[in-house]
Nucleic acid binder design. Structure first.
Lengths: 213, 213
DNA sequence: CCGGATCCTATTGGATACTG
DNA sequence: CAGTATCCAATAGGATCCGG
């Protein structure tokens, strides 16, 4: 889309010329979680052809959205400050798309980076501020995340650490976040499996992360 | 983009599968201003081929984003409530893209609907609330808009009416909105031509509509 | 193995002409 | 006016290959 011109002098068209091409905003989505190597991006976007990934990285770099940083023999891609300003766009798209997500289709996966951004989208700081600081270990499919909520701040990390509640769930966790499925019901029906900690803490999780459907 | 699947169970990918195709969000942008006929959409998107416009309208309708409404012999396209919820996405894109807009390129036009959405993007209700209600007639290129600000509410309409300030400008009006160009300087350099009313009111306009660059 | 580049095919988009 | 139909150009997808 970049080269082809919409022919309008307008912020929206300008934005779409820079990040409107297929896959571009998904690369940005993953880089919003943190700097990534080429192979990590490819792994987080399993269906992207390698030539397209290479082309997009080039385009996004030329647009000043990301930077290639050589770091001890490997190349790291990271967003520039201007690229990071796309976060509201990605969050708004994610919140809107969330409502249209039905049940997972055949072959659809949940990646750690997409899950991280989904949690950021659903995070309600004003609710979290009223609750005690809590750490969760959330496994959704193959994505294992350490989620730390403290006051109005949210951290989602890969890796382990001490947590108050550890649980595993399938993509149906969406129905808990949307409020369609009550936390205790999610546990009794097996949608969420509590691995460690007090099952009641899942209610706190559901209050902290919520998006209307 | 719609049929081709990103293969992820994620709000962002879901959104991009529905509105990620070329031209789709521009159709939504224009429909956010108001219901439009096929020919009006085509006029507001001068470079869209008619087959693409027809295809997008079909896709967007199938996705539940817009509706075709037969109204007294003609067909009107209007957003559904779900489609209207894309407004934050379009505003976020517009605000981000605004910063990357350089000077207008050859052949780029400003349409009434894109200008309307740009004003909505730049509107600062918290500033407007501190100022007296004001009506402006703004002509930017061929787009002539009646802009009414009252308290925290903004109305942008086509057509005429009594105004406090009428002015004409080129695309460089962007530099006033970004704060690059002071209102009085815009007038003395001819970037903005005041047609009726007190030139000092352009300062009020610039405070009311502002987007950082 | 990582980070791409290349090649070829399949789809999509663009320009224009045409029709109810 | 509100779209279809057609044909060509541009992009995306998929497999494979290459250099450090």
């Amino acid at each position: 889309m970049a080269a082809r011109d919409y022919g309008q002098y307008c912020g929206v068209t300008q934005a779409l010329e820079l990040v409107g091409e297929r896959w571009a905003l998904l690369i940005v989505r993953d880089l919003l979680v943190g700097p990534r190597r080429y192979g990590e991006l490819a792994a987080g976007l399993p269906r992207i052809p390698s030539n397209i990934l290479a082309a997009r990285l080039k385009d996004l770099q030329a647009a000043g959205i990301l930077r290639r940083v050589p770091r001890s023999r490997v190349i790291i891609y990271e967003l520039t400050p201007y690229g990071r300003e796309l976060e509201p766009v990605v969050l708004a798209l994610g919140a809107w798309g969330f409502k249209a997500m039905g049940d997972p289709r055949e072959g659809q996966v949940v990646t750690p980076d997409s899950m991280t951004m989904a949690l950021r989208t659903a995070f309600r700081p004003e609710v979290a501020a009223t609750l005690p600081a809590t750490a969760y270990a959330a496994r959704v499919g193959p994505a294992e995340l350490l989620v730390r909520v403290d006051g109005t701040s949210l951290d989602v990390l890969r890796g382990d650490g001490p947590v108050d509640l550890a649980f595993a769930a399938g993509p149906d966790i969406r129905r808990v976040i949307s409020g369609e499925l009550a936390p205790d019901e999610a546990i009794t029906t097996g949608v969420v499996e509590v691995l460690r900690g007090a099952p009641a803490l899942l209610g706190r999780f559901a209050s902290t992360f919520h998006l209307a459907a």
